[in-house]
């Protein structure tokens, strides 16, 4: 249970830090400018470091354990998106994986049950819950991130404004309710509950699995609190953010609201934590060898990059070297 409690306490401490820092110590500049800059720099540099670190590992072999028929003789129908042969087909498979989570869609569950007459049966049934809620969470998160660009650009690009409008299409309440706020919460709660309530998953879940969930849940909650319940001076917030992105940072307006500092501090934590955690699957998914390599081992020779030059001594050379001795010993030679 401490694997759940510990990350929860960490997140609660992370929430308390900006409250104390801003309300008691008055460190507006630290929490509004310095920490966001540092966190973003860690994110960018850490991300690049991580990817380059991964790229140190050679991937010499195509891994053909993919679903579907590989390209073979012309009368076998190739399964193009599952077992791609060309780069174009690989791009389609990657797009399906990154945008639609195709491999999660194939998630199967081992189902052990008994027929009415008592015969035990084992079957593999498809289970789509994880796929559905993972998709819901990730897409909501992406849309939320994109529409936050409205706070970091002047003038706001048309597509961003359109997305913002689309997200609040039902015009519920004032400020209008964003649909992604609800869907991301639904997705997060599902992902958390599945770890908490499925015994096998709880057994394999680590603090590093719960921490990002708690952190993102608190980011969403602080953002929703700020938008729908505790008001902040949003013009002051945008002024601050514009100062950051234009490299003319200035201290935030004083009455900007503590909840804003909680929000931006938690986001800073997420960004700084990102490159060193499982969240790097954002970059890692593009480097999955089972997804991004074409299954063309039977058509193209892939040379192992760490092959060292092997010293060979073929028979011709051998005979050249020992011909005289061989002749003396009466061993037949090929060349006289």
């Amino acid at each position: 249970m401490s694997r759940v409690i510990f990350p929860l306490i960490v997140v609660l401490v992370l929430i308390a830090i900006p409250i104390l820092g801003v309300k008691v110590a008055g460190l507006h500049l630290l929490f509004g400018v310095v920490i966001p800059y540092v966190a973003f720099a860690i994110f960018i540099l850490g991300f690049i470091w991580r990817v380059i670190y991964w790229a140190q590992s050679p991937v010499p072999f195509r891994i053909p354990t993919t679903a579907g028929q590989q390209r073979s003789l012309p009368w076998f129908k190739q399964s193009r998106w599952d077992n791609p042969f060309t780069t174009g087909e690989v791009i389609v498979r990657m797009a399906l994986e990154v945008l639609c989570f195709r491999s999660l869609f194939r998630n199967k569950r081992i189902d052990f049950r008994q027929l009415p007459d008592g015969t035990p049966i084992l079957r593999y049934s498809p289970t789509k819950w994880l796929w559905a809620f993972a998709l819901l969470f990730h897409w909501s998160f992406l849309i939320i991130l994109i529409r936050h660009i409205r706070l970091a650009t002047v003038p706001i690009p048309g597509p961003i404004e359109f997305l913002d409008h689309l997200d609040a299409i039902f015009e519920i309440g004032l400020p209008q309710l964003y649909l992604t706020d609800l869907t991301i919460l639904a997705g997060l709660l599902f992902l958390l509950c599945r770890r908490l309530f499925i015994p096998q998953l709880r057994y394999i879940s680590l603090p590093a699995d719960y921490f990002p969930l708690f952190l993102i849940i608190s980011i969403v909650c602080s953002g929703m609190l700020m938008r729908y319940f505790l008001r902040t001076d949003i013009v002051g917030v945008k002024e601050l953010v514009m100062g950051l992105v234009s490299f003319h940072p200035h201290a935030p307006v004083k009455d900007i609201g503590t909840i804003f500092f909680v929000h931006i501090f938690l986001v800073s934590c997420l960004f700084a934590y990102f490159p060193f955690s499982k969240l790097m699957h954002m970059g890692g998914v593009f480097l999955s060898p089972t997804r991004n390599l074409a299954n063309n081992s039977r058509y193209k020779r892939h040379i192992n990059p760490w092959n060292y030059p092997v010293k060979t001594h073929p028979y011709e050379e051998y005979e050249e070297e020992f011909r005289e001795f061989m002749k003396q010993a009466g061993i037949p030679v090929e060349k006289e």
Partner: peptide, 26 residues
């Protein structure tokens, strides 16, 4: 890897090069 990282930077640094260091008055 390098083009991939460049695409990553183009995406995440969007607000920075969109603003180009120009001061935006409130």
């Amino acid at each position: 890897i390098i083009p991939g990282l460049i695409v990553f930077l183009i995406i995440v640094l969007f607000p920075y090069y969109y603003t180009m260091g120009r001061m935006v008055p409130a």
